[in-house]
């Protein structure tokens, strides 16, 4: 304890007077708020202009003949059926391969993996893979599926390549869904004498299914909209027939858009826009499907 010196005059702290300057501070705040609103406005405007531009150019070309026709040198006769079928084939292959692989990997990482360096490496590796540019997967797919496994430039090779591309997304979404299941669920299953797999299959997987399925459907949407890797898997040819998944050439919607959009004539830009409308409609359907699946699967889940 120190005792104040009684002879010293009492200290009178002269604090600088606090200037609230409220007007100025509030004005800065208002300007910043204005900037926030402006940013949102710019984004909204860009999206609106994009949609208006695409629909204005594309709608006049969009009819049944366009959906059921094949590409042609003359825009008026051109259609997108081969590209539509190609995109469906790739999408279905992606679903078939990435569902079991992605879910199994996520289950291993959340329910089985011990906390050791190798398993941490697996996890870090998956997040790094999610950051690899998509076209690099095309290079891998070309070397692995097209050449090494001899699948050729087919929609099966394309589906396998896109599976590798979206697998990290599916795994990350599934891990999130599995982690969201409360531990009581696991302990309850064990208390009933379940083995680890019985616990996963009977208790954890059904509870995580809505999240997993949503992630899977959104990943499929991404696989259908993304096309850069497929440039290397031979999706760039003029296809006027329905593709056979196992042999022969194929094409997909985004590549068809690219080919038409690369031509200077306004009519080709028009059918390119029409094909974009079809892609956007597909995206909308898949996103809607994700919502419906989520709602239906989570009806019975409550904790």
């Amino acid at each position: 304890m120190t005792v104040a010196n009684p002879t010293a005059p009492p200290a009178t702290p002269v604090a600088p007077r606090f200037e609230p300057a409220l007007m100025r501070r509030k004005l800065t705040g208002t300007i910043f708020y204005g900037a926030c609103l402006a940013a949102i406005g710019v984004l909204l405007l860009a999206l609106t202009f994009l949609l208006i531009d695409v629909f204005r150019r594309g709608l006049p070309w969009l009819d049944l003949g366009f959906l059921s026709g094949v590409p042609s040198r003359r825009p008026a006769n051109a259609g997108i059926l081969p590209a539509l079928v190609g995109s469906f084939q790739v999408g279905i292959f992606v679903a078939i391969f990435s569902f079991p692989l992605g879910v199994a990997a996520a289950i291993y990482l959340t329910e089985y993996a011990k906390d050791n360096w190798f398993n941490r490496l697996l996890q870090t590796n998956i997040s790094n893979l999610a950051g690899v540019p998509s076209i690099i997967y095309g290079i891998l797919g070309l070397a692995l599926f097209v050449r090494l496994l001899g699948l050729g430039p087919t929609s099966l090779a394309a589906g396998l390549t896109m599976t590798l591309l979206i697998l990290p997304v599916v795994i990350i979404a599934s891990i999130e869904a599995l982690k969201a299941v409360p531990d009581a669920q696991r302990e309850g299953a064990y208390a009933l004498g379940a083995t680890r797999w019985q616990m996963v299959r009977g208790s954890i997987f059904p509870a995580a299914a809505p999240g997993i399925m949503t992630g899977l459907i959104l990943a499929m949407a991404r696989a259908i909209g993304e096309a850069a890797p497929l440039l290397l898997i031979g999706a760039s040819v003029f296809v006027t027939f329905l593709p056979n998944p196992l042999e022969g050439s194929y094409t997909v919607l985004p590549i068809q858009v690219l080919q038409w959009a690369s031509r200077p004539q306004a009519d080709f830009q028009g059918i390119s826009a029409a094909a974009i409308i079809v892609i956007l409609a597909l995206m909308l359907v898949l996103n809607g499907l994700a919502l419906v699946v989520r709602a239906r699967l989570s009806r019975h889940i409550q904790w």
Binding site: L50, G225, E226, L258, A261, A273
Partner: peptide, 20 residues
Amino acid sequence: ILETIAGIPTIVLGFFAVNF
């Protein structure tokens, strides 16, 4: 709005660049 922009296939943005 943000999620829609994020979900647009990137080829569409390329189209938007050359046409708008």
